[in-house]
Design a protein around this nucleic acid. Structure first.
Lengths: 138, 138
DNA sequence: TGTAGGGCCTCTAGTCACTAGAGCATCAAG
DNA sequence: CTTGATGCTCTAGTGACTAGAGGCCCTACA
């Protein structure tokens, strides 16, 4: 049996976050000891580990709820899980693409003041004027 | 003179968002007509355009506030603006790097169920177990 | 001049995923 | 038996908006 603090240390999820997950129904309510403190078993540990890993992979809590609801079943659920994972992958790729455009734009803007110290500021001008941009962004 | 709706259409910033920017002191309070409705001039249009473009480039409202406070001055302010832009660039590059790791991880996980329809679900297993991952992420 | 409809006003509350703090109870070690 | 860490609940705050209620105003058309 683990206390909430031990669970926190083992998984790297902060204590208030664990309570938050419980509050929104993502983690099942654990048992309590005589003094009303939460006591977790191995299943609680695994559930929280699952959530942590999925969060690190960028899944929303909503997605995770769906994924956890699916667990323990087979067939169609596998397809659903796969679908969620793939849509998350597409999502991530899209964010990468957009960020790369931003990076090149910012790079261009930053170069405007390379060592310059008199009579700028072209950085501010560039920030205010989208028409100076090479391509689309945002 | 523009109404808030015209400003919204011209810049692509939603009406409640414009009011929100005013509320937090990012946009100066415009004049009002006899019926208490906001009326903007060219300066309001430019200020909002600046904010919109900077937001699209991923700057926080806090950063934008700093950038706008700097405008109209020279020298040291140019350096400050440059510093903010460069730090934003570093930030974006870092996010790209992390997202790329996530993408490769998700790709691996997605492939586990390629056309599989019996006796999975390895997707869920992989999501629950970080030790299966090739490298670091998150 | 009257009216219909859109646009505008303020205010409150909700979103997501937490984080911080108050004020108190409980637990484990010495 | 005490002390200090850990736990409890509850409320409120974060960033950057978004949604909705309930009402006022403005413009175009008849």
């Amino acid at each position: 049996m683990f206390s909430i603090g031990q669970l926190s240390k083992a998984t790297g999820v902060k204590v208030p976050t664990i309570r938050y997950y419980e509050e929104i129904g993502l983690l099942p309510q654990p048992g309590r000891n005589a003094g009303n403190q939460r006591r977790y078993g191995q299943d609680g540990m695994e559930a929280l580990g699952f959530i942590k890993h999925a969060r690190d992979l960028g899944f929303s809590l909503e997605d995770i709820k769906a994924l956890m609801g699916l667990d323990g079943q087979l067939g169609a659920d596998c397809a659903a899980a796969d679908r969620i994972a793939r849509s998350q992958l597409a999502n991530v790729r899209d964010r990468i693409r957009k960020l790369q455009q931003l990076a090149s734009e910012l790079e261009r803007i930053s170069h405007l003041c390379d060592g310059g110290n008199g009579g700028c500021c072209k950085v501010l001008t560039a920030l205010g004027d989208h028409s100076q941009c090479a391509g689309e962004h945002g």
